[in-house]
Design a protein around this nucleic acid. Structure first.
Length: 202
DNA sequence: GCCAGGATGTTCT
DNA sequence: GAACATCCTGGCA
């Protein structure tokens, strides 16, 4: 039995503590359950990669809400990304759900993508959101209502690995990157590190 | 199997 | 007007 109070207490802690705690956690939505295998931490203070770095906007409003809520945003014109809001109310920290393993409802998670393997259904932030059926309408969704369940027992810290975030440009003016990416070593659903891709301006 | 490039809409300066 | 926390397809080895 997972007490919602305990979950809220964990999510209310520092984002760098919450992120590894989410590894192995299960997210159930729209009949699909995904076990998280890769996440990224995003904070507001001193984090140029965070949407909340420049303050609150109409889009990232959910980030400033209480911990345990869902923050969904639309990016690249066709992809949704799901985040778990963490930290204290108004702290504007969140954890991006980068990848996961579909453990239940794989048939539903396919959503017409039969050519994809089941392990690839939730590989990548956008695919993860698609697999769970999350879209902008679910922005601000309360995850404490059984949608998010922490791993019991928690993931072994020895399996948790950290590294630089992916796709975040301008990693700190100080030159130091933010090794705020967490993943479970040995998980096939975690894609290897991919250096930033140079996009040509159309 | 790996690498490279294009597509697509919203958001912010 | 430019950038974006990405994914998919095609081409080549």
């Amino acid at each position: 039995m997972t007490a919602p109070e305990g979950l809220a207490g964990v999510l209310g802690g520092p984002v760098l503590t919450v992120a590894p705690a989410l590894l192995g956690a299960r997210v159930t939505h729209a009949g699909v359950t995904v076990r998280l295998t890769e996440v990224e931490a995003y904070a507001a203070a001193g984090d140029p990669g965070s949407h909340a770095f420049r303050g609150r906007t109409a889009r990232n409003g959910a980030m400033f809400g209480p911990a345990g809520r869902l923050y969904v945003y639309f990016t690249y014109g066709m992809h949704f990304c799901a985040n778990v809001v963490t930290g204290a109310d108004g702290e504007a920290s969140a954890v991006l759900l980068r990848a996961g393993e579909v453990v239940a409802g794989g048939d539903t998670a396919r959503r017409g993508r039969d050519h994809l393997r089941e392990r690839d259904l939730a590989r990548g932030p956008a695919r993860l959101a698609v697999a769970l059926g999350l879209d902008r309408e679910h922005d601000g969704l309360d995850l404490l209502d059984g949608t998010l369940v922490l791993a019991q027992p928690p993931a072994d810290p020895a399996r948790v690995r950290t590294g630089p975030r992916v796709g975040v440009s301008g990693e700190g003016g100080d030159g130091s990157r933010f090794p705020w990416r967490f993943w479970l070593d040995g998980e096939p659903t975690v894609s290897p590190y991919r250096p930033a891709v140079r996009r040509r301006r159309g």
